[in-house]
Amino acid sequence: MSKRVLVFFPSKEYTESLVPEIVLKSGTIFNTIKTEVTPTQVKIMGEIKANEEKAQEFIRILKRRGAVVKELGLIMRFDPDKCVACGMCVSLCPTDAITFNKDFSVRYDFDECVLCMNCVKNCPVKAVSYLGD
């Protein structure tokens, strides 16, 4: 069980020990996949390794410490009605987030996504979009 999230901390709230501290306190594993630091904010993309209940608890703690948390499943949108299942995104995906179902339709699992944006940039019919930031 895992849940991928984008965590935005305002720079003034953030210290390097902040996330490890929360991990230790909650006892929930959080893998940092990507960190982006700008003068105003720190953007962390990571994976909460826990069941839904524990993951939500972890998100609550992050929020209490001043973070804005967005679940990847909510900021990446795949519209199966627009999709023609051409499969272009499948081979461009660096992870296993995009695969074919048995009936050749395309399946997105945003808990495997690393936000590389290959699918968003390349979809011929704009069936997948990014709503984050």
Binding site: V84, C86, G87, V90, D103, F104
Partner: peptide, 13 residues
């Protein structure tokens, strides 16, 4: 290497 076709099998079926 991952391969994918730009011809939709789902829609062709």
């Amino acid at each position: 290497v991952k391969a994918s076709g730009l011809s939709s099998m789902k829609m062709a079926v």
